[in-house]
């Protein structure tokens, strides 16, 4: 086959919804886009362990502590599947870590916000995982097989996390005045960053058109954002919390909520590194990696020693 016919074959598969698998031919840009997107997603999972990890030792009850630990552990598991999916495209996990540590690769900006009170554990589960699910459910049908299959597992666990987060918020909203205040304060701080998680408006999103064509992406940023707002506003009402947007109004004609302007200045500043916790998050990841170097070296040295000893034995036996 010529490159031209490879391309035709690939396009035909995409058009007929046949998944692309690691051994299949794919355009270089498709591969690059996927590596960027999957590794960014994997990094978001492991950086995302930090803001919630911040409350593991301070969770208010033993049950909440166990649930939170299990949740943060799940995120590590998601990172693992996603790094593995990205590796099928010809990049190693160490290379991806290096891109994260040098700032070349990004992760979801939401994790650059601080977790200040216990209610933030509820708000993150409810809003951040809720927004993530909106983004991720369509990815279960994304065109690249290993990514789609990883996402099926991720989504099952994320929707569980989202319910747990909502349950924390509901408990607080039904609690004492102080607890209600704590819940409202968390919603106030996490609402807009959650809305921004869907990325820039479609008009300003450089990758959207191509990703839609390749069926890596299934819906645009603005479509997903609207869907998230419509669902979440109703949930906030249900537990008596107020969404911090004075322009929020049901639009009968559109069948959607209208909402106020998004502060894109803040968004781009956090992306550029000026968020409240960008430095801390990256430093924590780098420290874990650097402090673990002697452990990884020793594990490697030991496994080589063992292999050599085994071969020695076999040679002697022969």
């Amino acid at each position: 086959m010529t490159v031209h016919s490879f391309q035709e074959h690939f396009d035909a598969k995409i058009d007929s919804e046949v998944m692309i698998e690691p051994r299949d031919w794919m355009p270089d840009d498709y591969r690059k886009t996927l590596i960027r997107q999957i590794s960014q997603h994997a990094h978001s999972e492991i950086v995302g362990m930090l803001p919630e990890g911040n409350w593991i030792t301070r969770a208010p009850s033993l049950r909440r502590k166990a649930v939170l630990l299990a949740k943060v552990q799940d995120e590590g598991g998601h990172g693992l599947y996603l790094y593995s999916a990205a590796e099928t495209l010809g990049i190693t996990r160490d290379e991806m870590y290096d891109q994260l540590h040098t700032g070349k690769a990004k992760y979801s900006s939401i994790f650059n916000y601080p977790t200040i009170t216990w209610a933030d554990m509820g708000a993150i589960g409810w809003l951040v995982d809720g927004a993530a699910i909106m983004n991720q459910v369509p990815l279960c049908r994304t065109s690249y097989g290993p990514y789609a299959r990883a996402m099926v597992r991720v989504c099952k666990e994320e929707s569980f996390h989202q319910r747990q987060g909502f349950e924390i918020m509901m408990t607080l909203a039904n609690g004492t005045d102080i607890q209600k205040k704590m819940a409202q304060d968390a919603l106030n701080r996490w609402w807009w960053p959650s809305i921004m998680m869907f990325g820039p408006n479609d008009a300003d999103s450089p990758h959207t058109a191509q990703s839609m064509r390749w069926r890596i992406k299934r819906f645009t940023n603005d479509e997903l954002r609207q869907k998230f707002i419509d669902v979440t506003v109703e949930q906030a009402k249900l537990i008596g919390l107020t969404v911090p947007d004075p322009d929020l109004k049901w639009n009968q004609e559109r069948g959607h909520y209208d909402f106020g302007p998004i502060n894109w200045d803040e968004f781009w500043n956090v992306v550029k590194g000026n968020g409240p916790c960008n430095k801390e998050r990256l430093e924590a990841r780098k420290n874990a990696w650097e402090n673990g170097a002697w452990v990884r070296d020793a594990a490697m040295a030991y496994s080589e020693k063992r292999k050599a000893r085994k071969e020695n034995k076999e040679t002697k036996a022969a």
Binding site: G53, I56, L69, A70, Q73, A284
Partner: peptide, 22 residues
């Protein structure tokens, strides 16, 4: 042990030690 969660030297071991903590 739970203090390790998110800070382990190897991702697989981060997950394993968190299991122990649980």
């Amino acid at each position: 042990i739970s203090e390790w969660c998110g800070h382990g030297p190897i991702l697989e071991q981060d997950i394993a030690i968190t299991n122990t903590s649980l």
